Amino acid sequence: MLDDRARMEAAKKEKVEQILAEFQLQEEDLKKVMRRMQKEMDRGLRLETHEEASVKMLPTYVRSTPEGSEVGDFLSLDLGGTNFRVMLVKVGEGEEGQWSVKTKHQMYSIPEDAMTGTAEMLFDYISECISDFLDKHQMKHKKLPLGFTFSFPVRHEDIDKGILLNWTKGFKASGAEGNNVVGLLRDAIKRRGDFEMDVVAMVNDTVATMISCYYEDHQCEVGMIVGTGCNACYMEEMQNVELVEGDEGRMCVNTEWGAFGDSGELDEFLLEYDRLVDESSANPGQQLYEKLIGGKYMGELVRLVLLRLVDENLLFHGEASEQLRTRGAFETRFVSQVESDTGDRKQIYNILSTLGLRPSTTDCDIVRRACESVSTRAAHMCSAGLAGVINRMRESRSEDVMRITVGVDGSVYKLHPSFKERFHASVRRLTPSCEITFIESEEGSGRGAALVSAVACKKACMLGQ
């Protein structure tokens, strides 16, 4: 009897593995994704193909990295998701002549009506938060230079001027797309009239992360975010950046690689679950690469896999709870928690219980395998993109072996128990001629924006502006 049951459990697990095998990517698959990513990057950089390229390769006008001589107080704003952060950054000489960066910050959550109302409502709310922060720190009387981390696709015309191309991540505030974001912020500050600010720089969160990590390690020339969304930036040779005049030196390019796949480059790798996630998203047909990796989508992918296993009578005796059938019910943090389970399955059992399920031991094991399959594919897909960037940098610099540091931020990278190990191992397999160091950014977005502002202020002083 026991043997029969054991055989049935083994057969069930084997069927589960057959279904989950769809998520496995072979090294040849990853090399294919990497080569296609490089081709799209090239198209994004070139003037004649930029418009139709899915990977936009947006110039950021960040050319210099901090040298350690900029000092002063800077205000930093960070808008990239449902939370908005205001930070005071003091850049100065530390002990023994070292450079020191001290920060104080406060988080504000953005109400739904500000995210989806008008641009005026959104930026009025942001300036209200700045006003509140300055009151708390008794700094209303000071006109501070301000660095703005704005983590949406922007076409820069200068370091302090950028046109919002399109909202992502659930934002829909009308009247912002096609307009200068810094102008919208300046107008809102003017409307309030109770404080003055000098907006000197606007950067993407990947750029802010790279600059913040450069402060720790001067070989950091790539910034990457794996959180709600997924994106990367890197220092490109100016001669390859056709959208900006000049051939000397390097400029940081914001790849906006989340949109890779929007022209069909990933079609052969998309599964039924991916198509369902895409169809029910706020932007169907867009940001397809990001939807395979980002935390906004990972939990939902797992939920759809679990429903398939229920329908195949391989999980929960073929019956799903009402909660499990509800879109968004299986949160991405559950994926991390399930994979963090120590082996007694308590954590998995508790999560499934909150979803109205009474799982068996085998159910718990199957749910864990589903989570591992989805998150491992995410790590491997992400590795193909980064390997594409790094191999490109090595080739354009004609280096036999390139040493490089990548600064990384984002909740999936930082909080998932195995993502970074799987990701690092896969990147290294795909970049055999590179020695890569990964560092995690601390308060990256805010500190990085302030350091970019410090560079901009120093330049302005040198130019006598």
Rank of each mutant, 00 (worst) to 15 (best):
M121E: 08
L276N: 11
Q286L: 11
L415Y: 12
R377E: 01
M202E: 01
D187N: 06
A370F: 04
V253T: 04
L324G: 05
R394V: 06
H416C: 02
V412N: 03
D341V: 08
S375G: 10
I225M: 08
P284F: 08
E216I: 15
I163E: 01
I225P: 01
M393F: 12
Q98E: 10
Q286C: 13
E331P: 08
R63C: 13
E442W: 14
L2R: 07
D400W: 15
F269P: 05
Q347G: 12
A329W: 14
L292R: 08
S353A: 10
L75W: 02
R369K: 04
G193I: 06
E245Y: 09
E443M: 15
C382L: 08
T255D: 01
L144T: 02
R392T: 12
P284T: 11
V91H: 02
P59Y: 10
L314A: 10
G94Q: 08
V367G: 03
T354I: 07
G44Q: 06
E443D: 08
E221S: 14
Y297R: 04
G97T: 12
A10F: 15
Q18E: 09
A454K: 02
R43N: 09
C382E: 00
S373H: 11
P284E: 14
I390Q: 04
I110S: 06
F171P: 00
S76M: 00
E268W: 11
V86S: 01
M402W: 12
D217F: 11
H424M: 11
V408R: 02
S360L: 12
T82F: 02
K291S: 05
Q347N: 11
R377P: 03
R447F: 15
E95A: 10
K12I: 11
K102G: 09
G72Q: 06
I348C: 13
A6L: 11
E17N: 04
I110T: 05
G72Y: 01
M381F: 11
I211R: 13
E51V: 08
N350Q: 08
D158Q: 03
G227E: 05
S411A: 06
S280C: 11
W99M: 15
D363K: 09
E236K: 04
G147D: 05
Q38D: 08
G80H: 07
G44A: 07
A449V: 09
V62M: 11
S340E: 13
S445W: 00
S426Y: 11
D194K: 00
L20Q: 07
R63N: 15
E279S: 13
A119F: 01
G356W: 07
Q138V: 12
C129V: 00
L75C: 11
M41G: 03
L355M: 07
N231A: 02
V367I: 08
T118M: 02
I439G: 09
L88A: 06
D274V: 05
R186E: 03
V89A: 13
A259R: 11
A379W: 04
A379G: 07
F330L: 15
G193E: 09
W257H: 09
D262G: 10
E319P: 14
L75D: 05
D217H: 11
S396K: 13
G410W: 00
E395D: 13
H50F: 06
S174E: 04
V222Q: 03
R85T: 02
T168R: 06
W167N: 01
F260Q: 05
V367F: 11
G356N: 10
V62K: 03
E435T: 11
T149V: 02
R368Y: 11
Y413V: 09
S76R: 04
G246N: 04
D274L: 03
T342I: 09
K140Y: 01
E399L: 10
D124P: 01
V310L: 13
V203Q: 00
D400R: 13
M8D: 05
L270T: 13
L30S: 14
F423W: 03
T82E: 04
K161V: 15
G246C: 06
P284I: 10
V203I: 07
I19G: 12
V401G: 11
I404S: 07
Y413D: 02
D73E: 15
V408C: 07
D205P: 00
G193K: 00
F152Y: 02
H380F: 11
S76W: 04
S69I: 07
R403N: 10
I366H: 09
I366V: 11
